[in-house]
Amino acid sequence: MELHQLEAFSAVMSAGSITGAGRLLERSQPAVTRQIQELEADLGYALFNRNGPRVTPTHRAFLLYEEVERSLIGLKTIEQRARAIGLGEAEPVRIAATSALAAAIVPSAIAAVPPDEKVAQFQLRSLSAEHVVHEVLTRTADIGLVTLPIGHAGLEVHWIAEAPCVAIFPAGDPLAAQPRIALRDLAQRRIVTVANRYRLRHRIDAAFAAARIHADVFLETNASLNAVMAARAGAGVAIVDPATGLGLAIEGVIARPLESVIPFYFGAVTPAGKPRRPAVDALLQAIQDATLALLEGVVLHDASQHDALLQRELRVSRARPKSLEIPA
């Protein structure tokens, strides 16, 4: 398995054709075809189904693609870092964060880092919570911002933020005139919210169950920004984390607090046992300051409270009623 074969595979996955991949790589179509055939021979299975000049990736190709892209990006990073070392440049600070935190918290924090920290570059990647944890554990990220649970061995948790979720309405919605929104006000409304049932979503479901209200979840999505934009379009009322609801200034929507508190938890983590550079510590402090400034009602907990916070949520979930009030 050669580097040029993996580059050809990645280009074909991106372009959707051998010809298009050749243009991306500035290689001839026969050369790309040969490199793909050699890779398939090395692997022992087909990566593409051929249909004339176009190709369709197989299921195995999609499984392989993420690993190949990670490796190619890693090689590119090594090349860039090697050149930077030769020029005497400072090492970049690498941040991995869930999409909501990457969009709402991290940019403000980066802008606030003092210029005398001598950071040549910041690198920010938005990923799923599970992939953020993986990036920090494998030390390909210096800092991770990720929703709970984060009780993994190998992570140093610096603090845990707790802030209440908010409801998002399109501007002009009658409920937007209310200072706080009761869940019963949403009984006849279509709900738009997130889909990860092992993190925030189970707390949203538990809150509706405790209020004996059936939540008509019309749209669920893996990114809270999608939910906000769906609310803006009139698809429903979005219930989202406060980082997205309050930290992003999105024209055409109104954010309101909920009477029933639905907590959103996230923490700042770094690789355990790895000495931190001053630039990393400076960004950690800036992230904490941005969190306190942007999120209304936020509380910072010590890292030792991680399990206690999750146990509190488990007790709430177990105490919810067995039957729900289904609106007519």
Rank of each mutant, 00 (worst) to 15 (best):
253 V>T: 14
209 A>L: 03
42 D>V: 10
217 V>L: 00
190 R>W: 11
62 F>H: 01
7 E>A: 04
141 A>W: 06
25 L>H: 12
26 E>I: 03
121 Q>I: 08
184 R>C: 00
170 P>V: 12
118 K>L: 14
115 P>H: 02
103 A>S: 05
39 L>S: 06
248 L>C: 07
279 A>L: 04
276 R>M: 15
46 A>F: 03
84 A>K: 05
116 D>N: 10
22 G>W: 03
101 L>F: 06
209 A>D: 00
223 A>D: 15
63 L>H: 07
306 H>S: 00
108 S>N: 09
291 T>M: 11
238 A>I: 15
110 I>R: 07
134 H>Y: 08
51 N>Q: 01
313 E>G: 05
298 V>Y: 11
154 G>M: 13
8 A>D: 06
19 T>V: 12
177 A>R: 14
129 A>V: 02
298 V>I: 08
152 H>V: 06
278 P>V: 08
58 T>C: 00
150 I>H: 13
191 I>D: 03
215 A>T: 06
30 P>W: 02
172 G>W: 08
115 P>S: 04
195 A>L: 13
267 G>M: 13
303 A>Y: 05
109 A>V: 05
147 T>V: 05
180 R>P: 00
292 L>H: 05
324 L>A: 08
307 D>V: 05
162 E>T: 07
73 I>H: 10
289 D>A: 14
294 L>N: 10
99 S>L: 02
256 R>K: 15
234 G>Q: 09
84 A>T: 04
166 V>T: 04
22 G>E: 03
269 V>E: 12
262 I>M: 09
307 D>L: 06
29 Q>S: 09
296 E>R: 01
224 S>M: 07
327 P>A: 15
262 I>F: 10
34 R>H: 02
28 S>Q: 11
302 D>W: 06
169 F>P: 04
66 E>V: 06
246 L>P: 01
177 A>V: 10
174 P>V: 15
309 L>T: 08
178 Q>T: 12
203 R>Y: 03
252 G>L: 11
137 L>I: 03
181 I>Q: 07
325 E>L: 04
91 E>Y: 00
276 R>A: 15
103 A>R: 02
115 P>A: 01
252 G>T: 08
262 I>Y: 09
49 N>E: 07
173 D>T: 12
154 G>F: 11
273 G>D: 04
156 E>C: 06
29 Q>R: 10
178 Q>A: 15
10 S>W: 10
180 R>S: 08
124 L>Y: 12
155 L>A: 02
136 V>M: 13
240 V>N: 00
76 K>Q: 10
164 P>G: 13
36 I>A: 02
255 A>G: 13
94 R>C: 04
172 G>Q: 07
230 A>M: 13
308 A>V: 10
204 I>M: 06
